[in-house]
């Protein structure tokens, strides 16, 4: 897919590559199920970077996991659909799901320190993916791996190919993981808080790199984060999540400059802004959180009665 299909506002001019519709998910418990996602809907169009914002426990990571099919075994999808490239991928057989990975879907994980296999050299781990999905031979895979490391701005790529993960810093490892995620030119990449585990200076570089790779390869990205500041920098559109419900969704500019929902406003007040350096940061008011939690429980009691707003 190429980025040319997006309009300036980032709204769909074509069918969405990913369409989550009225998704419900619960964790099965001994006595009763605990709802995690409540009627979540979102669309990602080709070439779009879509932010998924919310605090811990909002269910944002779970949405990413459902898309990739790596949700915990106790998580049950109790309603709705996730359509990727036109077909529902929530109940795909193992074999078909595997063929979707790599070329269709990719992941940039949260923790670069533990996401590479400590037993293999960097080159081998990149080449494995290329050989698995693109059927490259050893030499071609090596050449392409070298190219990919160069694409993610790793100096001395030939040397890094021969190194083991523990020999690299966190930022370097995240670059390698980004290279792996983009290796087979997937249509959609789930970036699960890809900068959270990195220190601030490296965060900025990694963000810029993800944006650059995305523009170069034309993939769509679902960018899961709790940081509205990051969203403002990188995302075309945003979905705001709390308690497993979508509270607000829309263009990044609109959300940042004129948030509608009280929670989004509270999140903005809690985010440092370089354009208003004097402002004091406000934590999300407890009364608001309590109100939202009560709404979520009321929704569980009578699904559909409460209109969870879509942007």
């Amino acid at each position: 897919m190429s980025g040319a299909q997006i309009t300036s506002a980032g709204m769909p001019s074509n069918g969405p590559i990913l369409s989550v519709r009225n998704l419900h998910l619960a964790i099965a418990g001994r006595h009763r199920d605990t709802p995690i996602l409540r009627d979540v809907s979102l669309d990602i169009v080709p070439g779009e970077v879509h932010g998924l914002v919310g605090e811990s426990g909002a269910g944002k990571t779970m949405i990413g996991k459902v898309i990739l099919g790596i949700q915990p075994s106790r998580a049950r999808i109790t309603g709705g659909s996730v359509r990727f490239d036109g077909r529902d991928i929530t109940h795909l057989p193992e074999r078909e799901r595997r063929s979707l990975m790599g070329r269709g879907l990719g992941l940039i994980p949260q923790d670069p320190m533990t996401s590479l296999n400590p037993a293999y050299r960097i080159g081998g781990q990149i080449a494995d993916v290329l050989r698995l999905h693109l059927g490259m031979d050893r030499a071609a895979a090596r050449a392409r791996a070298l190219e990919l490391l160069d694409d993610v701005h790793i100096r001395e790529p030939a040397r890094v190919l021969r190194q083991y993960p523990h020999e690299l810093s966190g930022g370097m490892r995240q670059r390698v993981l980004i290279a792996i995620a983009f290796a087979c030119r997937p249509k959609l990449i789930v970036a699960d808080e890809p900068t959270t585990a990195l220190d601030v200076t490296v965060q900025r570089q990694v963000l810029a790199l993800i944006k650059e790779m995305q523009a170069q390869e034309g993939a769509s990205i679902l960018f899961v984060t709790h940081d509205l500041g990051v969203v403002a920098k990188i995302c075309d559109r945003v979905t705001v999540l709390h308690g497993g419900r979508v509270l607000e969704a829309g263009d990044t500019r609109r959300i940042v400059e004129a948030p509608q929902h009280d929670y989004t406003k509270a999140l903005m007040a809690a985010t440092p802004r370089h354009d208003r350096p004097g402002d004091l940061l406000q934590p999300v008011p407890e009364a608001l959180t309590a109100r939202l939690n009560a709404e979520a429980l009321a929704y569980d009691a009578a699904p559909g009665a409460m209109g969870a707003g879509h942007g």
Partner: peptide
């Protein structure tokens, strides 16, 4: 439980 196993799933390796 290590993340590299989850990463391996997302690149499409079988069990």
């Amino acid at each position: 439980q290590q993340d590299y196993v989850a990463s391996a799933v997302t690149v499409g390796l079988g069990r």
